[in-house]
Design a protein around this nucleic acid. Structure first.
Lengths: 161, 161
DNA sequence: TATTGTTATACTCTATAACTATA
DNA sequence: TATAGTTATAGAGTATAACAATA
């Protein structure tokens, strides 16, 4: 239990020496994980009303960014298995936020598109969710926010692969 | 849909002007959220076998750090509601990883402690989980890892409050 | 009466395995 | 046979509302 007491900020700067990397990097992993878990728990639970869930917003955002996608492509981009995406899409379709129609030349594929209403709901939901996180972020220093901005591509890399 | 096409990296540096903050900060929120959600989804699903879940590890880590806690205190530290914690604790107790005994002078309280076996399992699980995330982190540049290290306290602040 | 914790219930999120339809 | 998607099923993770025990 004594090793758990070591503070994150005690970690020395990375010297670029390869032999030292594993130790530092694995300690970074151990520090990063619980923080991410707790923060995302907060973000996920933050919903104004029994409206659209975060997973649904995430899928709709990807559709807004990339345009219509097959169900499988969408699942891959979201990093979930096809059956999980099927369930998300069924709920979204029932609410009239997306449509599924079969691909013209390969009828196995289900091409998913945002509806007009889906686009509107996405915008409104994002605004509400952003408000909450924006207030949190406003409590940071402007330097911290700058660094966070820089970090986003890194976090994105970590989440992909 | 046109506004969604704006790239994250287009965001200009924060000039320190207060009137401009809201716009930038809310865009930061919108960029940060999906990245965090996807990354944590990956982390949560990464489990070697039908062993201990991430939520369980998180609760056990808090017990290891702070020593025995009442069920309510533990729930508050983890940022979940008491009934959620009750469920987590019931599973952990059934597996012999924690004990619940009533507080000597206030018998409403249930004091939760890690067992010896719980401490061992926690250490082993952390090692396995760290391995996975460490490999991801190893794919980053050492500059990216430094930035990440610097920002852990910031992310921690965001997750608390 | 107020507080602590649990039980009952429900919903989201995700997975694997087995199946259907199409290529 | 191989691929795309769905259905069936199960389990983790979380919440609110209602209850019991204790203070």
């Amino acid at each position: 239990m004594s090793s758990a007491a070591r503070s994150v900020t005690d970690v020395p700067d990375d010297t670029g020496r390869t032999g030292e990397h594993d130790l530092h990097t694995s300690e970074l992993a151990g520090s990063l994980r619980p923080v991410l878990v707790r923060l995302t728990r907060q973000i996920r639970m933050q919903r104004s009303d029994p409206s659209v869930s975060l997973t649904q917003i995430s899928a709709m955002s990807t559709l807004a960014r990339h345009g219509p996608l097959s169900a499988g492509d969408l699942a891959a981009r979201e990093g979930v298995r096809p059956p999980s995406m099927t369930k998300v899409l069924a709920a979204l379709e029932e609410d009239g936020l997306v449509t599924r129609r079969s691909h013209p030349s390969d009828r196995r594929q289900a091409i998913v598109s945002l509806t007009t209403r889906g686009t509107e709901v996405l915008r409104a939901e994002r605004r509400m969710r952003d408000e909450w996180l924006t207030q949190r972020l406003a409590g940071l220093s402007s330097q911290e926010r700058s660094l966070l901005r820089e970090l986003i591509p890194t976090l994105d890399t970590l989440s992909q692969d």
